[in-house]
Amino acid sequence: MQTALFLLQRLARDKTALFGALLIVGLILVALLAPILATHPADVAEFHPAERLQGPSATHFLGTDRMGSDIYSRLLFGARITIVIALIAVGTSVLIGVPIGLLAGYYRTWFSDLLMRVSDIFLAVPQIVLAIAIAQTLGPSIENVILALSITYWPFWARLVYAETRSALNNTYVEASIALGASPMRVLFLHVLPNISSSIIVRTTIGMGGTILTAAALGFLGLGPPPPTPEWGRTIAESREFLPDAWWYATAPGVAIFLVVMGFNLLGDGLRDILDPRTRRSRQ
């Protein structure tokens, strides 16, 4: 509780981090209140072909799309998809990657070597390529996007936790507690994990941004959730056929992605400065 309070106090002093946090709170609010804020909530699944491709106006704040649906309303509902994908995918990656990293870092056996080599394999090609292949195999849907991102994303946490665990084990007090006969679980969860949790939090916050970008790219390539899902990346892909006339079509979702990812990155930077004394100097 106290640490949380300390964190908040420190964050409040860091203007850019605060701005990032505000953006994220904004995203969450928009997602929660989408049905209230939307002017045409039914347009998530309903079309009005006669009103297609109209520019921004008082009825349609951000114009209409190729099916005559209200882009503003669809944008709000798209926030829900973005949050769901990023939260579950990153959460799963953390749940897989952190234990693997801890164990591999603690036991320096052939098995931990193997675990790390397996994660190397996943890191040997750009994440998006594997994600495309998996998403394509499983078929476009929200669940499959989450699955594809989780499968390809856990090694990042495994690598990080592995390295951090190994350096934490060199700490005198951890060495001491091992010498005193503490069980591996006790060492890992009481001494190592708290010691490295700040790195995990920072990596996870920034990872949210990266995941949102990758998910949007999958949607852009047509591998995201199917239509009429108002996913942002898909909306941008749809708009290409109607450029340059329908300039408003891609603008709103692109800005939305940009702001949300920026929010996570700024917050992550801020957290890093507060939590990780080794890099703190870089921001002075």
Partner: peptide, 12 residues
């Protein structure tokens, strides 16, 4: 910004 912008959107 450079790390937050979706490259496909920037390209467009």
């Amino acid at each position: 910004s450079g790390l937050a912008i979706a490259s496909f959107w920037l390209a467009i």
